[in-house]
Design a binder for these strands. Structure first.
Lengths: 214, 214
DNA sequence: ATTACTAAAAGCCGAGTAG
DNA sequence: TCTACTCGGCTTTTAGTAA
């Protein structure tokens, strides 16, 4: 029989981790949104299994409960405070050259300058990545959003950007266009400079992108 | 229908808060310690209620789940990081005078000096407290431990100490001897000075002890 | 391999109520 | 007041199994 999380959380909120608290089974029931009978039964069970104890002054959580809850707290914290940075590896590919079209569009350019402080080189460096999940992690994060717009009857979608360092040398941004022509295995990077030239990259070269998830 | 905590915690531990994770219902079942059929049913339910979603790449937690879990995380953190100080009130009593025997023992004295920076007055101030729960709170905390030892065939137990301020004036330590002769209603305090003299205390006088729980 | 349905058994819930 | 028992009804579980 596992622990009754709802009960433990209610007891914790009542302060039963540091002192005996006086809580009638009826009061407990209302906080748990169950009947008085059920809260009474749950409490008896929790006592039997060593999660809670009752004394003259009321209820309190046992050391066993506290250990368990503290562990849970750490698990939760670890999950939520997880990675602020990630490193993505892949190799340079040629791609469709469409970055050369959309990156220099005035509306995108204006927003790149305003939101990223970047006057981008007109084009993207395309990287085929090994770990596709990495792109999914980015897709989930907030990043900086460049708004979409219409241009000459064409709809240009929004772009999500993440600051990054290419080969640990040059600053740039990983961009995730909402209407990308690439799949999950290709990452697009923009920078002030022509990355291929500056880093002497050619198709097939291995590159490392250190991305800040902020 | 409330959320299924066990399921959410297992999914969180699997990393489903930041990406799709591939987990068969059988694998999930073994982690949840339920049958495959039950894990399948729970998952369907969680999906229906908007706690989890399934894509081609596996399972992941929804925003709704993350919001809920983050809130829970904060509750837990708040509970565990709670009070760093507490105030205990009571009145001076005479006690058994046994502090006069054990406080000055060289081994205890050495540790008091080393661990607390204290050369204690040979004796304890005994206080009958109104709120017995306060002592239980202390017993639960770590404090500073003075190790036990043997002396002339007698076993002297370990002592847990908490820095305190008596009457908001004089520094000292609340001590909790593991083999105390007192019950939960009596607190023993040591200090560099003779507290009775310095604060002009006599039996029955009200005192306030501000304890640092660290 | 996998998921999820059926159906019977097991377990849980809460109204009623005793102490 | 309060807690916790009984017991009929309802829900959840899991073995078996189909897809």
């Amino acid at each position: 029989m596992g622990m009754n999380y709802s009960l433990l959380f209610v007891l914790l909120r009542a302060g039963a981790h540091e002192r005996y608290v006086r809580l009638s089974t009826a009061e407990l029931a209302s906080r748990l949104e169950v009947s008085q009978q059920t809260s009474s039964r749950w409490l008896i069970q929790a006592q039997k299994e060593g999660w809670a104890e009752r004394g003259l002054n009321g209820l309190r959580l046992t050391q066993k409960s506290l250990t368990e809850l503290r562990l849970l707290c750490e698990t939760l914290q670890a999950s939520f405070e997880s990675r602020k940075k990630t490193s993505i590896k892949g190799e340079v590919i040629s791609g469709l050259k469409d970055g050369r079209y959309y990156v220099p569009l005035p509306e995108y350019k204006r927003q790149f300058k305003e939101k990223l402080g970047l006057s981008p080189y007109p084009g993207t460096l395309n990287i085929r990545i090994q770990d596709m999940e990495a792109k999914l992690i980015l897709a989930d994060r907030k990043g900086v959003t460049i708004n979409g717009f219409s241009h000459q009857g064409r709809v240009l979608g929004e772009i999500k950007c993440f600051p990054c360092l290419i080969q640990k040398k040059i600053k740039g941004f990983v961009i995730l266009p909402s209407r990308s022509h690439y799949g999950l295995d290709v990452l697009e990077v923009i920078s002030k400079t022509n990355l291929r030239k500056a880093l002497r990259l050619k198709d097939g070269d291995k590159v490392e992108i250190s991305v800040s998830l902020e």
